[in-house]
């Protein structure tokens, strides 16, 4: 008998125990929400910024008109000589028109240029699918246009976040993406919640940033024109 079959047979041979009904997670969160004061967009933005700053995420408030120029200036001040971007991504045209020095397209499989990605790429730029206020988190959904390693390998990660896409909780963020619903959409190959730059407290519980992933996370928080 295969390992699979004997494991399943042992599990099925066990006494069934008490009947446990399915937990109603959406109802639990709905009840929590009813008790909590209602949040509005401004409160969500404020909480997001507070929590993300706690994780050492750097927040830069931008508008649709100035974010690319702001990014260009940030690259200069941070000494970024190469900025990785997705040439078929949603913001490619804006980035290419911004005059950023060392703009580097992620345009071939990683296998062909791994050493360059690891040793010679200062920063990566990605879009995001949303944010989470309660936890200070970005929802990142890498795909064929903005691959997985862009937000991981370069020492600085720039992320563009639409302030309108900030939810209150992880549960609401998953619902907003359509992952939690009566008819959930298929999960992407890889989906991420990112809360600050990588960190560790493994040596004498002393917090250190830049463990294996980015040392810096910079959020370009996209507000309405005239709002910042």
């Amino acid at each position: 008998m295969s390992a699979r079959d004997s494991i399943l047979r042992r599990l099925r041979a066990a006494p069934p125990g008490q009947l446990v009904l399915p937990p109603d997670v959406p109802a639990f969160y709905a009840a929590v929400r009813e008790q909590a004061p209602a949040t509005d967009r401004a409160a969500r933005i404020e909480l997001f910024c507070e929590r993300m700053s706690f994780w050492r995420g750097e927040i830069v408030r931008v508008t649709p008109g100035n974010w690319a120029e702001t990014l260009r200036v940030l690259c200069v001040t941070k000494g970024v000589n190469s900025l990785l971007y997705g040439p078929r991504g949603p913001h490619a045209a804006t980035l290419e028109a911004a005059g950023i020095k060392g703009l580097k397209p992620y345009d071939r499989p990683v296998d062909e240029w791994k050493p360059e990605l690891f040793r010679d790429t200062d920063a990566g730029f990605t879009s995001t699918r949303g944010g989470i206020a309660e936890t200070g988190t970005l929802v990142v959904w890498p795909d064929d246009k903005e691959p997985r390693l862009m937000s991981l390998v370069p020492p600085i990660h720039f992320a563009l976040l639409d302030a309108n896409a900030i939810c209150d909780t992880p549960f609401e963020a998953m619902s907003a993406q359509g992952w939690i619903s009566d008819k959930p959409v298929a999960m992407p190959s890889n989906a991420l919640f990112i809360s600050g730059p990588s960190k560790t407290a493994d040596i004498q519980i002393t917090l250190a940033y830049g463990a294996h992933g980015p040392k810096e996370l910079v959020i370009l928080l996209l507000l309405g024109e005239g709002e910042s």
Binding site: T137, D144, P147, R148, P170, A191, S195, G196
Partner: peptide, 24 residues
């Protein structure tokens, strides 16, 4: 575990590299 509201990364993996994807 560590008194954190969330960890830096929460990584959800559902598929290997798909045709057209450049890494993974």
């Amino acid at each position: 575990a560590t008194g954190q509201i969330i960890t830096t990364y929460f990584n959800m993996i559902s598929r290997p590299r798909q045709p057209g994807e450049l890494d993974g």
